[in-house]
Lab assay of single mutants.
Amino acid sequence: DEDELTGILKKLSLEKYQPIFEEQEVDMEAFLTLTDGDLKELGIKTDGSRQQILAAISELNAG
């Protein structure tokens, strides 16, 4: 699971946030449920980064 998540972050060039997800024990299943508020709480402060992550999440959820 973590590897898939790392792959997604790398694709977005946001792998610098990978340790945050690891630290908070966010797995792929949890990742797919994250909201903008969750990402802010995790410490992802950049709007653009959150938008990219949320776009990836909705794409993955759309299947």
Rank of each mutant, 00 (worst) to 15 (best):
residue 20 I to C: 14
residue 31 F to C: 01
residue 36 D to M: 04
residue 34 L to K: 06
residue 17 Y to W: 12
residue 58 S to H: 10
residue 10 K to D: 02
residue 20 I to H: 08
residue 10 K to H: 05
residue 33 T to M: 12
residue 18 Q to L: 11
residue 46 T to Y: 08
residue 34 L to N: 04
residue 20 I to L: 10
residue 16 K to C: 11
residue 31 F to K: 05
residue 10 K to A: 12
residue 9 L to G: 00
residue 5 L to T: 02
residue 48 G to D: 13
residue 10 K to W: 00
residue 59 E to L: 07
residue 41 E to Q: 14
residue 12 L to K: 07
residue 40 K to C: 08
residue 52 Q to D: 15
residue 25 E to T: 05
residue 14 L to Y: 00
residue 21 F to N: 03
residue 25 E to N: 14
residue 47 D to R: 09
residue 27 D to E: 06
residue 62 A to E: 14
residue 18 Q to P: 01
residue 61 N to W: 03
residue 56 A to N: 05
residue 12 L to E: 00
residue 10 K to L: 02
residue 52 Q to F: 01
residue 41 E to C: 10
residue 36 D to L: 01
residue 40 K to A: 10
residue 46 T to L: 10
residue 26 V to K: 04
residue 45 K to W: 08
residue 19 P to Y: 07
residue 35 T to L: 00
residue 18 Q to D: 06
residue 56 A to M: 08
residue 33 T to E: 13
residue 37 G to M: 12
residue 12 L to V: 05
residue 4 E to D: 06
residue 61 N to H: 13
residue 33 T to K: 15
residue 39 L to Q: 02
residue 34 L to E: 03
residue 10 K to Y: 01
residue 25 E to H: 12
residue 2 E to H: 15
residue 11 K to N: 07
residue 4 E to T: 08
residue 45 K to G: 10
residue 61 N to I: 04
residue 55 A to S: 14
residue 12 L to D: 00
residue 23 E to I: 06
residue 12 L to I: 15
residue 46 T to V: 10
residue 48 G to L: 12
residue 45 K to C: 08
residue 19 P to A: 11
residue 36 D to C: 04
residue 16 K to T: 09
residue 24 Q to F: 07
residue 60 L to K: 03
residue 2 E to D: 10
residue 48 G to V: 13
residue 1 D to S: 14
residue 18 Q to M: 13
residue 9 L to W: 00
residue 24 Q to P: 00
residue 2 E to Y: 14
residue 37 G to N: 11
residue 1 D to E: 11
residue 41 E to Y: 06
residue 7 G to M: 15
residue 11 K to I: 03
residue 23 E to K: 11
residue 52 Q to R: 12
residue 59 E to D: 11
residue 59 E to F: 04
residue 18 Q to C: 09
residue 51 Q to C: 05
residue 39 L to M: 04
residue 2 E to F: 15
residue 35 T to I: 01
residue 33 T to C: 10
residue 33 T to N: 12
residue 39 L to I: 04
residue 4 E to P: 02
residue 38 D to Y: 00
residue 36 D to T: 03
residue 32 L to D: 05
residue 35 T to P: 01
residue 38 D to H: 05
residue 35 T to M: 02
residue 45 K to E: 14
residue 28 M to D: 04
residue 47 D to Q: 12
residue 16 K to H: 14
residue 47 D to H: 14
residue 14 L to I: 06
residue 59 E to G: 11
residue 44 I to F: 09
residue 63 G to V: 10
residue 58 S to F: 04
residue 60 L to F: 13
residue 1 D to L: 15
residue 60 L to H: 12
residue 58 S to R: 14
residue 56 A to D: 09
residue 8 I to A: 15
residue 13 S to E: 13
residue 47 D to Y: 10
residue 9 L to Y: 00
residue 1 D to W: 05
residue 32 L to N: 06
residue 13 S to D: 15
residue 20 I to P: 02
residue 58 S to M: 08
residue 60 L to M: 12
residue 20 I to D: 11
residue 7 G to N: 11
residue 36 D to S: 05
residue 24 Q to A: 13
residue 15 E to T: 08
residue 26 V to L: 09
residue 57 I to K: 05
residue 52 Q to P: 01
residue 40 K to M: 08
residue 59 E to K: 14
residue 47 D to K: 10
residue 56 A to I: 04
residue 40 K to L: 13
residue 60 L to R: 10
residue 13 S to T: 10
residue 4 E to L: 06
residue 39 L to K: 00
residue 33 T to S: 13
residue 5 L to Y: 03
residue 31 F to P: 04
residue 15 E to F: 03
residue 55 A to I: 08
residue 23 E to A: 12
residue 49 S to P: 08
residue 44 I to T: 03
residue 36 D to Q: 03
residue 9 L to A: 00
residue 16 K to R: 08
residue 9 L to R: 00
residue 53 I to T: 06
residue 2 E to K: 13
residue 38 D to E: 12
residue 45 K to P: 12
residue 30 A to F: 07
